[in-house]
Design a protein around this nucleic acid. Sequence first.
DNA 1: CTGGGGACGGGGCCC
DNA 2: GGGGCCCCGTCCCCA
Length: 627
Amino acid sequence: MLHAPDTRPLGACVHRSFPEAREPPELSSSPGSTMTTPFLPPPNMAPKAGPSTPGRPVAPGVTVPGSPRAASPFPPPPLCSGLAGWASPGAARRPPEPRPWARAAWKQTHHQATKPDTSTRRRIAKVTMGSPEDELIGIPFPEYSSDLLSGLNEQRHRGVLCDITLKTQGLEYRTHRAVLAASSHYFKKLFTSGSPGTAHSVCELDFLQPDALGALLEFAYTATLTISNSNMREVLRAAKLLDIPCVVEACAEILQCSVDRPGDAGIDADGIDYEKAERYLAEFAARQNGEVRAASPPPAPSPLPQEPMRSIIPRRRKKQHQFLQVKPSRPNNHILHNAPFLSRHFPIPLFDEDEDDDRSPLREERNHSPLNLVSNENSLNYDLERSFDGRPTPPPLQPPLPPLSPPDEVSDDDPMDLEDAGYLNPLHDPALAAELLDGVDKLVRKRRSQVPQECRVCHKIIHGAGKMPRHMRTHTGEKPFACEVCGVRFTRNDKLKIHMRKHTGERPYCCVHCSARFLHSYDLKNHMHLHTGDRPFECSLCHKAFAKEDHLQRHLKGQNCLEVRTRRRRKEEPPEGRRQLAEGLDLSNGRIEDFRMSMIRYWGLPRPDSSEGSPEGPVAAKPPESI
DNA sequence: CTGGGGACGGGGCCC
DNA sequence: GGGGCCCCGTCCCCA
């Protein structure tokens, strides 16, 4: 279907800036009134920093009113149904829990909200009109978390309400225990060990460099890590000592490209520092308990099992890792291949970690690295999934493993031969140094460009570099790509190209079973359902199966299916055609829960409390359209 | 009401 | 940073 050029004036979209949303908007009862989105949760309430984490299943009952929710990249479900579930006096300040089953419903609402056609307005109005007065209404405050952090940071700078002073090498940092404990596993353990009643207000952390500690404090209060190439290693080292996984990960990724520069061995805190950190932890806990005693050095950690070295980067899904993968420059590869001991000293992998080719000579060398930083993937603080108490904190000292390298190589105890070091030091070669530094800058820039951006208009989080202009055109209505044949304009060039297939007659996606040809690959995919008979989308109520998910959604919104969703109907003699359905709603066989979950999933309704298993439960699960 | 196709916006990946 | 390409989910329209 061809769409006429969008003549919406700029700013005519239904979205609006967030500050207005702080004020409770008036309920509009007029179907034709200009309903903007005040009652629609601002899309994608994700924190500015942090990728989305979709798909985390939520157990039933988690999202009952008043239940605490964690930060979520997903907005609450549509007001029509979901706001009653996710908002609470304590939870309204935070974005809701990710609820995959509500995502589709929210997307639907958001999609409608971005299309100010008459049907959309009517739908929103209906929704608003139908909201029960006694339902809780959640008003999202997407900027609150950042405001809160900003307020704490201001307090820190002014020294107000600070309850702890960090001292290192003569410098003092007044700060808040809660913020430190929330950002650092080490501080959490430090402040939670011992008796809370006798809190000492000064922590002397001599094992940390002041610059690094300052940078990490800034990070804790601003969610932004400000570092330079010169102090990145020190910050990484401090982050490892303080057990701040996300900083470790970020620094390690950036540094990954420059591992063959001298000094990289210093990115791992040496054993003395870990020992200091551990000892201070013990002393602090002892003082907290009022038992000032000479803290003995912690017992030497048991030797770690030898495992093939992986990476300083935790293994993650390939998709996550690829955007920062580093392709080492050829000169450095050459250097490493010809200097196996260098890889031993600087064992950060030079290749994509997804390469599991252990036959690689380089990997083989790394696997045997005596100074392996992470020979045990579970041992150090790169396992971002581990719990705070899951591992000794701080990380244990890494006992040197027996060198497996040829005996003629430099031993670990031997200082690096200066001549070799000079030869191998790329910084001694201006060209190589420039290349490496340029690589670091490029990585930093790339990482920055990959940071999800929040739309100023709709507060939606846009992922991907260069995607924001594309998204903004959905607000402005700008359609700069015009078809030269028919004049139809598009917001995106790729859509125009697909459109041009209409004029050229090109239908590149051909069905192998029939003569059908399609403009889009996904059309062919949908079409294939005809031949395969595959109907993966089944109505949990009537068990009718559909080939397309949206057809199932449409079916669920249909009035015929809703009529029999009342349990009251079940008590009556069901119509013959509905007998099976009514039996399916029998609470005794548990299917009623299936039905409720189905309603919740497709309409984004709040998850029912376990106590809500009342006979009238399904009745309350009304779709927006039926309100 | 359902089946089918088209359009649209977003995300991932790559250059 | 920007753009191309692809895929996906969703909405819409038509028969």
